[in-house]
Amino acid sequence: MGDFDFQVIINSLPFLWQGLQLSLWLTFLAIIGGLAFGTLLALARLSGIRTLAFVAAGYVNLIRSIPLILVIFWFYFLVPLALGRPVGGFQSALIAFVMFEAAYYSEIMRAGIQSVRKGQVHAGQASGLGYWQIQRYIVLPQAFRNMIPILVTQGIILFQDTSLVFVVSLRDFMTASSIVARTEGRLVEMYLFAALVYFVICFAGSMLVRYLKGRMAT
């Protein structure tokens, strides 16, 4: 332990920072995409249209029973095949994360939407609003508000999950740390440093969740 080499970490900071930027960017885009697709899935499940609800439920349950790594492999294989040309690793990973997270977000959304009282929808209908207007102006804003803490929690989980792009060698923070660790032969330093960085970010996120929960309770 005496020969812990801080210099190797300092020297590789610019390279690691690039990786971290990719991790954060991937997290951000996947949250946006996952939320959008997840909301659609949740609306489909609550639409009352039998086939639509059935298909959406099937999708959600399928995705939720397989590991994320397998989903990443699936889309690395499928996306180029479907488009008929090779695409960058980032796009495939992003699609995989959006498709995967949407299943989890849709469950959160469904609970959130169901937490909005039925009377609100009826009031909207009585005021002559259409389905999409009711969702857009009445149900979803209230649902989102109730869900903010749990959505942030899911965002933290997603950020941790992005480390799994390591399996397809996309250069996120984890892969960058691992590259430095191997080329410099400094496995202990680099992996402990990676753990520290992830911990600080995720712990800060969970403090934010606690703060948000406290504010909602009042």
Binding site: I156, M174, A181, L192, Y198, F203, S206
Partner: peptide, 23 residues
């Protein structure tokens, strides 16, 4: 709980496999 929950499982896996034998 806070320590193990806020570090990605992949990083933990690598620490146990690569770092712990050195420590």
């Amino acid at each position: 709980v806070e320590l193990f929950r806020n570090i990605p499982l992949l990083v933990q896996m690598f620490i146990w496999y690569f770092a712990v034998p050195e420590l």
